[in-house]
Simulated assay, not measured.
Amino acid sequence: MADKIATREAYGKALVELGEKNDKVVVLDADLAGATMTKYFKAAYPDRFYDMGIAEANMVDTAAGLSTMGLIPFCSTFAMFGAGRAYEQVRNSIAYPKFNVKLCMSHAGVSVGEDGGSHQAIEDIALMRVIPGMTVIVPADANETRKAVFALADFQGPAYLRLARLATPVFEEDQPFEIGKANVLRDGTDVAIFACGLMVNESLEAAKLLAADGIDAAVINIHTIKPIDRECVIHYAQRCSKVFTVEEHSTIGGLGDAVADVLMGVVNCGFHKIGVPDQFGQSGKAADVLKEYGLTAPQIAANIKAKL
């Protein structure tokens, strides 16, 4: 692993790079440019940046309008507000008419830390995944985030990009990125671990711990939750016969359910979801909160061993 970089940081810098290459790109924020890192785009292209204030619904509707003019709006705020507070506008003003708006929301998951349960969006993947026609992407590191931003600019239609506050390791090996195509980061035959976002690195570390106990774990990065890579999911479920999903999100409606939907009635395998149980997050240091919900590598490894 190289340096630790937050995916929100990578997003902000990727926008500047994208803005130089594509003059159709505009960025909207809800008074949180310093946190979502759209501040970099604001400094570079002030005439293409719109601070909409603490008015997420208005921001989303404005982005919808801008998209009808041939522009490519990237909307940012905290996931709790972008996916939560503005849900109706996302559904009816963007997804329903199939407008080309990119919803790139930061501070998702319990790793938000000290902001507590009110700001820790653990339902956002479920909310966005259930909207007809919405593409949902959860990048695992800074490099993948950059690639996702560029891919979304070329992609036609509404999309949700989930970003994190916490700085996390950047993978040393460069990985390809294609919307809807999973990346196998570690091959294995005993158990298949499907992970997304911050949990990809934790799952890789967990796989090393499992290997020390003679358990050969495959780790698959499902960066696109919707549309999910059905072929890859089915292949590894059949190959390993034991499946675990790991996500920094509620175990209801997220990656776990997306994988289960693919496998149900198709592959007969052991299946377990690792994530946030049916409860809200808590305030605390990010590392402590992740540990509270069993989302660290040693805990993931122990959980998998106990269920094998």
Rank of each mutant, 00 (worst) to 15 (best):
K226R: 15
M1K: 10
N22A: 12
V246D: 00
L18Q: 02
Q282I: 15
S93D: 07
G180T: 04
M199D: 03
Y87M: 13
H235V: 00
A140M: 10
P139D: 11
S203T: 10
A153H: 07
I300K: 01
K21A: 09
V25H: 02
A64P: 07
N143F: 12
M199E: 05
Y50D: 00
I215H: 15
A211T: 03
A207G: 10
M59C: 11
K13W: 03
D213E: 15
A108Y: 01
F194W: 13
D124Q: 13
I252T: 15
V170T: 14
G113R: 04
A260L: 12
N58S: 14
E17D: 11
M1C: 10
A151R: 08
A140Q: 14
G281V: 06
E144D: 09
Q279K: 13
T38D: 08
T251C: 09
L71D: 04
D154E: 14
N22G: 06
F244A: 04
I179A: 07
R186K: 13
Y160I: 06
D23E: 12
I304V: 05
G82D: 06
I54W: 13
C75Q: 05
M59F: 11
T77P: 00
K147F: 02
A207S: 09
S283D: 09
A164T: 07
R129Q: 10
M134Q: 02
D190L: 05
T135Y: 06
M69L: 14
P169T: 05
V184Y: 09
A167V: 02
V112R: 03
G265V: 05
P277R: 10
G197V: 10
D174W: 11
D229L: 13
F194V: 07
G253A: 01
I220W: 02
V170C: 06
G34I: 13
I193A: 02
L28N: 05
A83K: 03
V25S: 05
H107Y: 14
M52E: 11
R186S: 03
R165A: 02
D31Q: 15
P132F: 13
V243W: 03
E202T: 01
K307H: 13
R162M: 10
H223M: 12
G294A: 11
S283H: 06
N92G: 08
G117M: 05
D61L: 14
K102Y: 09
A287L: 11
D216L: 08
F74H: 00
V262L: 00
A108H: 04
A30K: 08
A212Q: 11
D174F: 03
Y45H: 13
T77C: 11
D288V: 14
S283P: 04
E205Q: 12
S241V: 01
F41E: 00
G284A: 12
G284P: 05
Y87V: 13
A126V: 03
S241Y: 05
